[in-house]
Amino acid sequence: MTSTSTAATGRSRVAGGPGAPTPRPWPLLRHSLALAGRSLTKTRRNPGVLLDALILPVLFLVLFVYLFGGAVAGSTQEYLQYLFPGILVLTTVLAGQVATGLHIVVDMKKGVFDRFRSMPVPRTSILLGSVLADAIRYVVAVVVLFGVGYALGFRVETGFGSALAATGLAIGFGFSLSWLTVLVAVLLRDETLVSTVGFLLPFPLVFGTSMAAPAGTMPDWLRAWAEVNPVSHVIEACRGLLLGGPVAGPVAASLAWSAGFLLVFGTLAVVAFRRRV
């Protein structure tokens, strides 16, 4: 019958006419970028979420330098140099943890998520889009931190390239670790739980290192933790890259840990997500 053939072939019509557009190549990449664009627009409209990632590290930097600077290093200036690389890592880890999982949980509970799922969009793009858009938070947080650091008197002792490498390394680590909150978000699907985990996790990780004081001054149990803690390598690497000193070993260790986290948590998160939605 004619109506059947119209329904099957009438692809040229626009609204109301039957027929979906033909698929185009690179669906994962294109859809992830389209969804990342959406998340960025949302961030632009609600810039408050950026603040969380900014305020804490800056607050810690200022507090630690003026409270402990004299006691730990003898002078606030020397202590600022010592502390800054650790705070840089704290910044990127926090930036990866505070909102990433939360946004995914909120999205999963909203109707727009059903619409994405009813469209020919790879499931993984929905996660990737959200996580890619977080890049803006890392960049803003790092720029602000360097600004405050310089205002207080911090100076990079190596060069611009090294400083950039340190920043990249810290962001890479924060990004890889952020897949852990993505996994937690997909599994728990609860805003409060996910925010709590995302907020608390960075502290034992980043503070259980030589961030604020050399490991030699710590009690045994804490030193043992600091020695196995992967964040120690990242802080050490950043120190080397920002202030000079040996870098090859810690940089390699940081990259290896980042790759490991990305692979393990990323895969688990994607698998859990595809299973649950």
Partner: peptide, 18 residues
């Protein structure tokens, strides 16, 4: 998506539909 405008919503869905 409530945070997006009418146009942004429909354009996004169009992109996701290739």
């Amino acid at each position: 998506d409530e945070d997006l405008t009418g146009t942004e919503n429909l354009v996004l869905f169009g992109r996701l539909l290739d």
